[in-house]
Amino acid sequence: MTAVAAPLTTPRQGRRQGRLRRLFSRSTVNIILVVIGLLWLLPSFGLLVTSFRPAQDFFSAGWWQAIAHPFTLTLDNYRHILQTGGIGDAILTTALITVPATLLVVLIASLAAYGLVFLRWRGRDWVLVLIVALMVVPLQMALIPVASLYRSVGLFNSIPGVVLFHVAFGLPFAIFLMRNFYTGIPKDLLEAARIDGANEWMMFRRIVLPLGKPALASLAIFEFLWVWNDLLVSLVFLSGSSHVPITVAILGQLRQFGSNIDLISTASFVSMIIPLGVFFAFQRYFVRGVLAGAVK
């Protein structure tokens, strides 16, 4: 005779166990995320607090004591850097580099990706291979040749020169990202538009561009952050200029005084808050854009 073993748990218990397991695994993930978040957030918060402290406090106590007694927070540092430190000018210079570089990269990449995905032409696949290959070329390799080239054409120590360099090195990844996103757009849509009477430009502007919005937004954020935070390129191509971006300006402050941490932290926070604002503004698209293209 065969006996059937009674189930050890009732269906209801099983469901409860499953729910508990899910809850546990979800809370584990949440805890890990919170820890990672704190690790990233804490230094930024420290920077924020430091930027509001008088210089002498920095050497006597850590920033975490600032909130405790005695309460000595001040706006002097901000007043100082905005009035004297040339930080205002540096932020403007950074914006003059970052905004055109970002716009150009987004514009050129979206057009180039359209050509790589929706137009049929000889050698298209080889051009794509070349673009992917360019992604692995380190930027440092080009600094000296481009610097001497810039000197001969008069772009050295000029903002357009830096913009051009950022655009050139931003494009391979940008084209690759946009191309991958565009391949997810059904070809039928373009064919329908073609039959409906749209030319290539209309198909790009009316169909592909609106559908590519999430990818464009992610690309714009990526590019904006990279160019805004860049130090190396500006240091090489703009160090002799009277207008330097904020990253170079902060470095200059550090070199000049060595110990003016109050001003440096204030300038750093200002330099950080602008891209952060851009990120939050486009955050909604960013998440969608990064996922888009991964799963069709």
Partner: peptide, 12 residues
């Protein structure tokens, strides 16, 4: 005018 299998409606 063509009607596609996937309908090919402009989603936006």
């Amino acid at each position: 005018a063509m009607v596609f299998q996937s309908y090919a409606l402009y989603p936006h």
